[in-house]
Amino acid sequence: MISPRTLRNLRSELRRSALAKLGVTLVVGIFLMAVFAPVLAPHDPTDQNLNDSQLPPLGFSTTENRTTSEFVDGEVTIVEEEVTVNATAEHPLGTDSLGRDVLSRTIYGARTSLLVGVIGALLAVLVGVTYGLVAGYYSGRVDDGLMRAADVMLAFPSLVLAIALIGLWGRAAIRIPDPFVAAGITPGMPPDIVLPGTVVLVVALVNWGWFARVARGEALSLRSQEYVTAARSMGAGDAFIIRTHVFPNSVTPILVLATIQVAAIILLESALSFLGFSGATLSWGFDIAQGRQYLSSSWWIATMPGIAIVLAVVGINLVGDWLRDALDPGIEQGEGGV
């Protein structure tokens, strides 16, 4: 369905803009990370090893003062010694308080974030776009009624609404068997991908209003285009018109919004995990929450997933900008001199 012209625009914009290149690189990287997590991760992200807890990342070996009491000759001496905690190549990004490998956890975290982001945004698109196209296409009273409801939805602060809904519905987790483990490629890895089901529903519910708004605006302006009138003059029904004319012509802004919303949803998911509402235990937000208490001694536990979030969100937004710049001028309006 993508026309060659659109592809051409996408390519030339990508060639032109360094930021677009960066965005695409980041997003592709994170996507690959999420898909091939079991292959890429050096350790099982849930493996605990208290002996190796709080190991620093490579290049950040730390020394700390350790006091031990020794019992020599009936006397207790307090020995104060400097112990060097060496970073090991085994845990390039260090380990957390339970000795789990931070790198592996960060790689696995991409799965949760992307799954929630993409599925949540898709749900929101599905609901919001249908709703908005109908409202905009029929306009008038239908529009008034439908959009008022959508506005009410959007009027709630999204985090508060999300927390309230999770409180109402509980934290359901959906377990999807990991294909790599099932196929025996990566035996020792966690057997399931845990998808926080309630969170997916909630983020979709919190965000569909944006899509409804954009789709409605597009439909409202498209319905008065002459090609829509032309279609009606041939006897086309509303469903046909919405399908062939209105929807395809609103795709660009919806796509751009969807990209940006994926990023917003990733942030929201992280916030929910951080606050402990998500139910997912392998997520960037959850790890930040875990690492927070060790921020002074073991900064990397919270920082690594934090960086991952920033990179993902920035990358996705850059991709959104790229799409917007590349797709918008694709259809230039011309004016004829009479």
Binding site: S3, Q225, E226, Y227, T229, A230, T244, H245, P248, N249, I331, Q333, G334, E335, G336
Partner: peptide, 11 residues
């Protein structure tokens, strides 16, 4: 129609 631009679906 009058407007040769808005009377054809650009897609």
């Amino acid at each position: 129609f009058q407007d040769p631009f808005s009377s054809l679906d650009p897609r």
